[in-house]
Design a protein around this nucleic acid. Structure first.
Length: 335
DNA sequence: AATAACCACAACCGCCTCACT
DNA sequence: GAGTGAGGCGGTTGTGGTTAT
């Protein structure tokens, strides 16, 4: 059994690439307007390398659109957020960071971000607080950790709800949970992420605007149905899943406007907390969609992720102000 | 100054998926 | 539907640079 090797390794060079090799590879790809078959490229380009090695060198280092240099805080936040949704789907995460490669992101995660989460008492694999698994694990060490614990708790709750909703929408296949990653769930989250919904999620800064949106059903509807570059993601397709997704995201938000949004829409709390009940109707889910979208808009990303910011790029984590953690979980109900 | 320890990142390896026959 | 090859992906390792002793 076993596959034949991608190339005959005998006589092939390994290890770091030289400038000459880089030049040969770049020149060949430029000259041919593309790499063509990677397998045959080394021979045609005059390289003593395996095609796979050439592909890696090109995609991770030589590609002209690669952004070099240190990651910005925004990029790091984005990676953490996406990792929470997608897990170790480095390619999927990289697709959301123009100019960054999966390898680069993977390295950043393994060398910095993972340690940072561990330092905060969070399991970098699940983003769950350690002490939620076992009483023997160490408790959160800081307000930021508690905040993340709540954030993660809400996210997990949303996942569980998503799972249960999948049984309600039996005819409509739903993606599995992020901790059981598949291509489908990646696509799903990325569709959301790339949609206007995700855009709003990323860019919520003006608190007045979203409040107006909260009271404007039309604005919600249009936002739900317009998905930008995303391929044909309709409200009907998104709504049930969005509930879980955005509820998890919104769980970190405790601002007053959030509460106002809850009160402005009857049954909001019930929708969020109990929308997955087996008696829930499709209409409930439509309501959920609007509410969930609003929650998504309400998520104060710029504040809530600020505890991940550091004075210097890789300094020790600095606790966030206590004012950030005045959260209450009134909109989170037991499953 | 020497060297051990640590860190960051480039590169490799093996498995998986998909397209093609 | 099965077999095969190519590309892609994620985990891991190797290497060079930096810092600490």
């Amino acid at each position: 059994m076993g596959r034949t090797p991608c190339c005959d390794k005998k006589g092939l060079k390994k290890g770091p690439w030289t400038a000459e090799e880089d030049e040969l590879l770049v020149n060949y790809i430029k000259k041919n307007n593309g790499h063509g078959s990677w397998r045959s490229l080394p021979k045609l380009a005059g390289l003593l390398r395996c095609g796979k090695s050439c592909r890696l060198r090109w995609t991770n280092y030589l590609r002209p659109d690669i952004k070099r240099g240190p990651f910005t805080q925004e990029e790091e936040k984005l990676i953490i957020q996406l990792h929470g949704m997608l897990g170790n789907r480095w390619a999927a995460i990289a697709s959301q960071l123009p100019g960054r490669t999966d390898n680069e992101i993977k390295n950043l995660w393994n060398t910095h971000l993972k340690k940072r989460l561990i330092g905060m008492g969070l399991d970098p694999l699940t983003h769950e607080p350690y002490n939620s698994h076992s009483p023997t694990t160490k408790p959160p060490a800081s307000p930021a950790t508690r905040h993340m614990a709540q954030w993660e708790s809400a996210r997990l709750e949303a996942e569980a709800r998503l799972s249960r909703e999948s049984s309600i929408f039996g005819a409509q296949p739903l993606p599995p949970l992020p901790h059981q990653p598949t291509k489908i769930d990646s696509d799903y989250f990325l569709r959301l992420w790339n949609s206007e919904v995700g855009d709003s999620f990323r860019n919520v800064t003006g608190r007045g605007d979203h409040k107006a949106a909260c009271h404007s059903p039309t604005s919600q509807a249009s936002s739900s149905t317009k998905c930008g570059s995303v391929s044909a993601v309709t409200t009907d397709q998104v709504s049930p899943q969005l509930i879980g997704f955005s509820a998890g995201m919104a769980s970190g938000n405790q601002n007053e406007e959030m509460m106002e949004c809850k009160s402005c829409k009857s049954n909001t709390e019930e929708v969020i907390c109990g929308g997955s009940d087996s008696s829930s109707s499709i209409d409930d889910m439509d309501d959920c969609s609007d509410t969930a979208f609003q929650l998504l808009l309400d998520f104060p990303i710029n504040n809530d992720m600020s505890f991940l910011e550091e004075g210097n790029s890789h300094d020790e984590y600095a606790p966030a102000p206590a004012s950030m953690f005045n959260m209450e979980n009134s909109f989170l109900c037991p499953l």
